[in-house]
């Protein structure tokens, strides 16, 4: 008698191999799905924008005429937004992270703060918009200005910076800290001279990622009341402003009035994507170049 029934084994083998292949196919398809949708999106946006991105478009002022309209105001508005969000989130975010990691006792209060930061990161951006409208725009009377928009966005992305900074600080090995204390350094000296320099790459990466999130957000700006038509370029923090995502939003909606606005929206999307791509590449570069292994 045979110990192995080759036919039976072969039958089962085939089935198992078939399932093995099929599962691989399913996973491949799911991986491709997102990619294909993204490719279609990019294709449509780029096809619509061809011929519309020019120097005149980038440096021209906003206009109701599609031929004359430019996004200089929106680009500079977005830069202004970054100029507020960057420093504000860096100072507040790193401050929070240092407190939580270096000073706060690991107890109830610490875990309450920690949980709240995690929760804040999950709050929908439109809620931050309402917060900004109530506090900065109305209560402080700042209007839909650069400073009001910037502070609203800062609140929105603060959790990203805090978490990134905390992780960067936590990854500084304890022997560095202990060596510093051993040399007689105080806590502040240790933070200033050892911990911050060692974690700066991680912190900067977090700040840049937060910036790229902030300049792509639309909902909070819609809520704080950025006008649909605002031509002058902002020159200081109390000026009203518009930003790239707002221009995309309004041009997309107003394409029912002037069909070419759809092309302007597409061209603005391309510009915004390029800015985001540059920012994210910078974040990766900094992380790779400056992160030291201890």
């Amino acid at each position: 008698m045979e110990y192995i029934d080759i036919d039976r084994v072969k039958k089962r083998m085939d089935k198992r191999l078939f399932i093995n292949k099929m599962v691989k196919g399913i996973f491949f398809a799911s991986a491709m799905f997102g990619l294909v949708v993204l490719a279609i999106l990019l294709y449509r946006v780029i096809a619509d924008s061809i011929g519309w991105i020019s120097m005149d478009f980038l440096t021209g002022l906003l206009s109701t005429s599609a031929e004359r309209a430019g996004i200089r105001g929106a680009i500079i508005g977005t830069l202004w937004l970054m100029a507020i969000v960057g420093p504000v989130t860096m100072i507040l975010g790193v401050g929070t992270a240092i407190y939580l990691e270096e000073y706060a006792k690991k107890g109830k209060i610490h875990s309450i703060i920690q949980t709240n930061i995690a929760n804040l990161a999950g709050v929908p951006s439109i809620v931050f918009g309402i917060l900004g409208l109530t506090i900065f725009v109305r209560l402080f009377g700042l209007g839909a200005s650069v400073i009001a928009g910037g502070l609203t966005m800062s609140l929105l992305v603060l959790p990203i910076v805090v978490v990134a900074a905390q992780e960067a600080i936590r990854s500084v090995p304890s022997h560095l800290r202990e060596a510093s204390y051993g040399m007689g350094a105080t806590k502040w000296q240790t933070i200033k001279n050892v911990i911050l320099p060692a974690s700066i790459a991680g912190i900067l990466t977090g700040v840049i990622l937060a910036l790229s999130r902030a300049i792509g957000e639309t909902a909070p700006l819609v809520v704080i009341g950025i006008p649909a038509l605002l031509i002058p370029v902002p020159t200081n923090v109390t000026d009203n402003f518009t930003a790239l995502p707002m221009q995309i939003y309004y041009w997309t909606l107003d394409a029912v009035l002037v069909a070419e606005y759809a092309n302007l929206a597409a061209a603005t999307i391309v510009v915004l994507l390029i800015v985001l791509f540059i920012l994210n590449s910078a974040a990766i570069l900094i992380r790779n170049k400056f992160s030291k292994r201890y």
């Binding site: 500079i76 002058p232 020159t235």
Partner: peptide, 17 residues
Amino acid sequence: VVAAACGGEEGNAGQES
């Protein structure tokens, strides 16, 4: 970088006005 961003804007703003 931040300063350059601000400076750039002010430069533009100056030209604008």
